[in-house]
């Protein structure tokens, strides 16, 4: 799951380097506009609906956190 999330973010911003636990917002890798793109990608390509309640900084701060959240939404 982490690889997929990393790939989606790299598609949105191909010039940034980041690790699984890099804070994506603190380091200017994601912002309000690109977050919407990422969510669309996750929903369309991983077939998971992301409800409003889980769109929080805690869940989206790092690749690991996003991957963990998506996995649990998928019931994995």
């Amino acid at each position: 799951m982490k690889e997929e999330i990393t790939a989606f973010i790299q598609e949105i911003n191909e010039y940034e380097d980041f690790e699984d636990d890099t804070d994506l917002f603190e380091n200017g890798i994601l912002d309000s506009l690109t977050l919407v793109l990422l969510i669309n990608n996750i929903e369309e390509r991983l077939g998971v609906f992301i409800p409003e309640e889980v769109v929080t900084l805690e869940n989206f701060a790092t690749v690991s956190k996003i991957a963990g959240m998506v996995s649990s939404l998928k019931g994995e």
């Binding site: 309000s32 977050l35 409003e52 769109v55 929080t56 900084l57």
Partner: peptide, 9 residues
């Protein structure tokens, strides 16, 4: 500022 990314907040 973060609230403009996380609209529920």
């Amino acid at each position: 500022e973060r609230s403009f990314t996380f609209h529920k907040d």
